[in-house]
Amino acid sequence: MAKPKVATASLAGCFGCHMSLLDIDDRILKLIDLVDFDKSPVDDIKEFTGPCRIGIIEGGCCNEENVRVLRDFRKHCDILIACGDCATMGGIPAMRNTIPLKECLDEAYLNGPTVYNPQKILPNDKELPLLLNRVYPCQEVVKIDYFLPGCPPSADTLWQALVALLGDKPVELPYELIKYD
């Protein structure tokens, strides 16, 4: 029987959640026994090769490409996990949500105290995905099945959640594994 497939992506995140996944140490060998990875930075597969059992999303949606990828995950994955604080509540990128987009760009590229930009250029290559008006937690864009909070969620949290889901068991995390920092 073919192994269930897992896909992962980092949207508006810092890859910390992916690092945490790698932090499961030697259990990664067990994980490889349990699953195959499809689209994921772990194996550098860029597009889905087919339907997946589990999708793990790090980061919220700050630009249009994030939305496209997240919807793609929703289409291909039976179970979608919002992994980490950015995915579940927007995280640090969402701090811009109370500031108009233009002010954010001006601060980042023109007025910030460490900015050197004598030609006053705002990045605007036609291939650059456009920013959204604010950062959206994943559940505001697609339906999410499970939430793993943490910045990042600990390796144990990720491991326990994955093992439970792969065994068709409910994800029940003990006190020490639900943390928001």
Partner: peptide, 21 residues
Amino acid sequence: FDIGAALVDSQALAGRKSVHF
């Protein structure tokens, strides 16, 4: 979630259309 509405500001600032939608 309305992708069109979420991109209005950005399209106006960048002076171009969406790449993906």
